[in-house]
C-alpha cells in the first residue's frame, strides 16, 4: 500500500492530465493544477524554512566553527520574516484606510522594503555581476584551438563578440553592403555577409537556429520520454524506498 499507492496516484494524475489536454472543457485543468502547485510550494516553505532554522540553531548551540555567521543568517531571516508577515510599517490601502491590513507588504518605506532595496538588491545584482569576471577567465582558459570543435566554438564566439561592437563594424566597413543594392546577386549577398555585423546575424539566424531547433526537439522528446517512464512506473527513484 505504502508503495503502490503513490505510484497509482502519479499514474492516474498524469494520464488524466493527458486526456484532459484533448477535451475542450478540461483544457484549463493544467492551469488549475499550476495554481495548486504554487500553493503547495508555498506551504512547503514551512519545511524548508524550518530546516533552515534548525540547521542554523544547531550550528549556534554546538558552537561549531563559523557559528557567528549562522547567527547573522538567523537574525536576518527572523527580522525579514517578521517585518514581511506582519506588514510592519505598512500603511493601509489608500481606498480602504479603515482596514489596517489592506496595504501591500512591500510598500516603499517599510522595513521590509528597506531590507529588500538595500540588502537583497545589491547582493543579488553583485553576485550576478561577478559573471563578468568569470566569462573573462573562462574565455582565457577554455577557448583554445585544440581541435575542430573547439575552433568552431571559439571562432563563433570571437566573431559575435567582435560583431556586436562598433569596432567590429568599423573593421569590415570596406566590404560592400547589399542593403543599398537593388536585387543583389548571390555573390553580392555572399560578400556582404562577410561584414561582421551581417556575419553575426547570419550565424545567429542559420547555424544557431539549426542547433537550437535540434536541441529543442531533443529536449521535447527527452521530456516526454522521462514523463512517460514515470507515469508507467518504470522510473520511480523520486518516490524513495517506500519504507517508512
Amino acid at each position: 500500500m505504502k508503495r503502490t499507492a503513490p505510484l497509482l496516484i502519479a499514474s492516474i494524475a498524469g494520464f488524466v492530465m493527458i486526456v484532459a489536454y484533448f477535451i475542450p472543457k478540461t483544457q484549463t485543468w493544467g492551469e488549475d493544477v499550476s495554481v495548486w502547485f504554487d500553493i503547495l510550494a508555498a506551504i512547503a516553505f514551512i519545511l524548508g524554512g524550518g530546516n533552515l532554522l534548525r540547521v542554523q540553531l544547531k550550528k549556534i548551540s554546538d558552537r561549531r566553527p563559523g557559528w557567528g555567521y549562522a547567527l547573522i543568517t538567523l537574525i536576518a531571516f527572523v527580522v525579514m520574516l517578521a517585518c514581511g508577515l506582519l506588514k510592519i510599517g505598512s500603511h493601509p490601502n489608500e481606498q480602504y484606510p479603515a482596514f489596517a491590513w489592506s496595504g501591500t507588504y512591500n510598500q516603499t518605506g517599510t522595513p521590509f522594503w528597506w531590507m529588500y532595496e538595500y540588502l537583497i538588491v545589491p547582493l543579488q545584482s553583485t553576485i550576478f555581476a561577478m559573471l563578468a569576471f568569470y566569462v573573462a577567465s573562462a574565455a582565457f582558459r577554455a577557448f583554445r584551438a585544440k581541435n575542430v570543435e573547439a575552433i568552431l566554438l571559439l571562432g563563433t564566439a570571437f566573431v559575435i563578440l567582435l560583431g556586436r561592437t562598433a569596432a567590429g563594424v568599423f573593421l569590415t566597413d570596406f566590404i560592400p553592403s547589399d542593403v543599398l543594392i537593388e536585387n543583389p546577386t548571390f555573390l553580392q549577398h555572399l560578400v556582404s555577409t562577410l561584414r561582421l555585423e551581417n556575419l553575426t546575424v547570419f550565424l545567429m539566424d542559420i547555424f544557431n537556429t539549426a542547433g537550437n531547433r535540434a536541441i529543442m526537439i531533443g529536449i521535447a522528446l527527452g521530456t516526454a520520454s522521462v514523463s512517460l517512464k514515470i507515469l508507467l512506473g518504470v522510473d520511480r527513484s523520486y518516490l524513495g524506498s517506500g519504507e517508512d
Binding site: A132, A136, F140, F143, R144, L161, T165
Partner: peptide
Amino acid sequence: RMGPQLVAHLLMIFLIIAGNVIYF
C-alpha cells in the same frame, strides 16, 4: 553603457587571442 561594453569586449577578444598564443 555601450562604452564599457566595447572596451570589455576588446579585452575578451584579447584574452581569447592570448590564450591561444600561449597554447600554441
